[in-house]
Deep mutational scan, measured.
Amino acid sequence: DEVTIHLGDKTIRVDGLDKELLEILKELARRGADEEELRKEIERWER
Rank of each mutant, 00 (worst) to 15 (best):
L25Y: 01
T11N: 12
E37C: 06
H6Q: 15
E43V: 06
W45G: 00
D15P: 15
L38N: 00
T11F: 14
E20Y: 08
E41S: 04
I24W: 12
A29W: 08
A33K: 03
R47E: 15
E27Y: 05
D1P: 13
L21Y: 01
L7C: 04
E36A: 13
K10R: 08
L22V: 15
L17E: 02
I5M: 06
V3C: 14
E2G: 15
G16H: 13
D18C: 02
E37V: 11
D9E: 07
A33T: 04
W45N: 01
R13A: 12
V14C: 06
I24T: 07
K26Y: 15
V14N: 02
E23N: 09
T11I: 14
R31S: 12
D15A: 07
K10Y: 14
R44L: 11
E27L: 05
G8A: 12
T4R: 06
R30F: 13
A33P: 00
W45C: 01
G32I: 00
E20R: 11
R47M: 15
T11Q: 07
E41C: 05
E27C: 08
R44E: 12
L25S: 00
D15G: 06
T4Y: 15
R39Y: 14
G16I: 12
R30D: 13
I24H: 11
R47D: 14
G32A: 01
E2N: 12
R30Y: 11
V14E: 03
G16L: 12
I5Q: 03
H6V: 15
E46W: 07
E46H: 10
T4P: 08
L21Q: 03
I5D: 03
V14A: 06
W45K: 00
G16Y: 10
R30E: 12
R13Q: 14
A29F: 09
H6M: 14
L7N: 04
K10M: 15
D1K: 09
A33Q: 02
I12Q: 02
E35P: 05
K19T: 10
K10A: 13
V3N: 15
D34N: 14
E46I: 11
D18T: 09
R13F: 14
T4I: 15
K40I: 10
D34A: 09
E41P: 00
E46A: 06
L25R: 00
K40F: 09
L25H: 00
G16F: 10
E43Q: 07
A33L: 05
A29R: 05
H6N: 15
I24L: 09
R13C: 03
E2T: 14
I24N: 04
E37F: 06
R39W: 13
R39I: 14
E36F: 10
E20D: 12
L21E: 01
T4W: 12
W45I: 01
I12S: 02
W45Q: 01
H6Y: 06
I5H: 04
V14G: 05
L7G: 04
E23A: 11
I42M: 06
T4F: 15
R39T: 07
R47V: 15
E23D: 11
H6A: 09
G16W: 09
A29D: 03
L17P: 02
I24E: 02
L17Q: 04
D34K: 13
A29Y: 07
R39Q: 09
L25M: 02
V14Q: 03
D34V: 05
A33D: 01
R13D: 08
L25E: 00
I5V: 06
E43C: 07
I24V: 10
G8K: 10
D15I: 08
I12N: 03
K10E: 10
A33W: 05
T4H: 14
G8N: 11
E23V: 09
L38F: 07
I12T: 02
D15N: 12
L25I: 09
E2R: 09
D9G: 07
V14R: 01
R47Q: 15
K19D: 10
V14Y: 14
I42E: 00
L28Y: 03
I12Y: 05
D34I: 05
V3S: 14
L38V: 07
G16N: 13
E46K: 06
W45V: 01
L28D: 00
E43P: 00
K10T: 15
W45R: 01
R31I: 09
R39N: 06
E37R: 11
L22F: 10
R47W: 12
G32C: 03
L22R: 09
R44F: 07
L28A: 05
L22C: 04
A33Y: 07
R30N: 13
L28C: 01
E46D: 09
E36G: 07
R31Y: 07
V14T: 06
R13Y: 12
R31P: 00
T11C: 09
L38Q: 01
D18A: 12
R47N: 15
E20W: 05
R13P: 08
G32T: 01
R13T: 14
K26H: 09
K26P: 00
D18L: 05
G8M: 10
L25P: 00
I12D: 03
E43K: 05
E43Y: 05
A29H: 07
R39C: 08
L25D: 00
D18F: 04
I5P: 02
R30S: 13
V14L: 15
E2I: 14
L22K: 06
V14S: 02
I5L: 09
I42W: 05
R44W: 07
E27R: 03
D9N: 09
D34T: 15
T11V: 13
V14I: 11
T11M: 04
L22Q: 12
H6E: 13
I42L: 05
I12C: 05
K26I: 15
H6D: 13
D1Q: 11
E37N: 03
G8S: 11
K19F: 11
L22H: 04
G8W: 09
R44V: 07
R44H: 09
D15W: 03
L38I: 14
E23Q: 10
E46Q: 09
W45F: 07
E46T: 07
E41I: 08
D1R: 05
E35Y: 13
R47H: 15
A29C: 05
R47T: 15
L21K: 03
A33R: 02
K40Q: 13
A29K: 07
E23M: 10
R30G: 13
D1Y: 14
V3Y: 15
K19S: 12
E43G: 04
V14K: 02
V14F: 15
D34H: 08
D1L: 13
K19L: 11
D15E: 14
T11D: 11
K19W: 11
I24P: 00
H6S: 13
G16E: 10
L21R: 02
R39F: 10
L17Y: 11
D1C: 09
K10P: 07
E43S: 05
W45S: 01
E35L: 08
L21M: 03
E20Q: 13
G8T: 11
R44A: 12
T11E: 12
